[in-house]
């Protein structure tokens, strides 16, 4: 029988995983909404965040330094990816964009193997947060609590940024009609590059944050990118709010599954996705007419 305390802890773990996934999903949704690109290399950017983080911490830098520097470095990688491999493909059949991101994911995985080897890296959580805290008789890891808090604030900030700021308005307009936005005097190719870079930074952040909690290996990108896209399908394509809620849902599902049926966590997510596809093909929060293309 699973105790109350374990259940509460699984909830926190699930929420923390969910909000971190939301960081990944936010970037994916933005890139998909604006450029119509299904970026399979998004998981690779997440993985690079974790590896850059490990390297910085091992080199004697603090975790906090890594939390700032690694995502920026990933942002630069994302920027180079967009400029040199995606820019030449806009306007071509969208198939080639997903193919190129598949190729990039491949190249990043193999490059990581070359640089860091194939064995798992040990990413230590910062000493300050190594302890635990007690709330209402339940013990939590301080680090997990920090990640939950940090990512929640960040996701909320992204949401407000998209809904309430001028940049948000520009992005909404670009998602709807990039050509027109260009004709109004905005350099849309720079908007695309900027959005891709920011989405890479968010992925890198998620990588640093989840690094200490999960195995840092050259193949870690794959399950994450599958989970992230499954969340988008569950939440409804191009629906930001749906994506966030679905992230939390999948995070919780993962948390409880890890407690009850550990080897089936991913299978449960895909099963949920299949059910959503059968019952509501447009996603739980999608509208029937919601065509993102």
């Amino acid at each position: 029988m699973v105790g109350f305390e374990a259940l509460v802890r699984a909830t926190i773990l699930g929420l923390q995983f969910g909000t971190t996934l939301a960081l990944l999903v936010a970037g994916l949704t933005l890139v998909f909404g604006l450029m119509d690109v299904i970026n399979l290399a998004h998981g690779s950017l997440y993985m690079l965040g974790a590896y850059f983080g490990v390297t910085l911490v091992d080199a004697g830098g603090s975790f906090w330094l890594a939390l700032v520097v690694a995502p920026v470095a990933v942002g630069v990688v994302g920027l180079l990816m967009e400029v040199f491999t995606l820019r030449p493909l806009y306007g071509r059949e969208p198939l080639y964009q997903i193919l190129v991101t598949l190729g990039l994911a491949f190249v990043v995985e193999e490059s990581v193997k070359e640089v860091w080897g194939t064995s798992a890296q040990n990413f230590a959580a910062p000493a300050v947060l190594a302890g635990s805290i007690d709330i209402a008789g339940v013990t939590y890891s301080q680090y997990q609590a920090f990640v939950l808090l940090f990512t929640t604030v960040l996701v909320a900030a992204i949401w407000v940024g998209l809904e309430r700021t001028n940049v948000g308005v520009l992005l909404q307009a670009t998602a709807h009609d990039p050509e027109m936005v260009d004709a109004l005097g905005f350099d849309v190719s720079r908007v695309f590059t900027g959005v891709f870079a920011v989405s890479a930074v968010l992925a890198g952040l998620a990588g640093v944050l989840l690094g200490p909690a999960r195995a840092v290996t050259p193949s870690m990108w794959f399950n994450v990118v599958l989970l992230a896209f499954a969340i988008i399908v569950i939440g409804g394509l191009g629906n930001f709010r749906g994506a966030i809620v679905a992230s939390l849902l999948v995070g919780l599902l993962t948390g409880y599954a890890a407690l009850l049926v550990p080897s089936y966590t991913e299978l449960l997510v895909f099963a949920l996705m299949a059910v959503v596809l059968l019952v509501r093909p447009a996603g739980i929060f999608g509208t029937a007419t919601g065509d993102p293309g």
Partner: peptide, 17 residues
């Protein structure tokens, strides 16, 4: 059931299952 290129992702996911 996947819109556009989401077909690609769905086949990928179900193969992973």
């Amino acid at each position: 059931r996947g819109t556009g290129l989401f077909f690609a992702f769905l086949t990928l996911a179900f193969a992973q299952v």
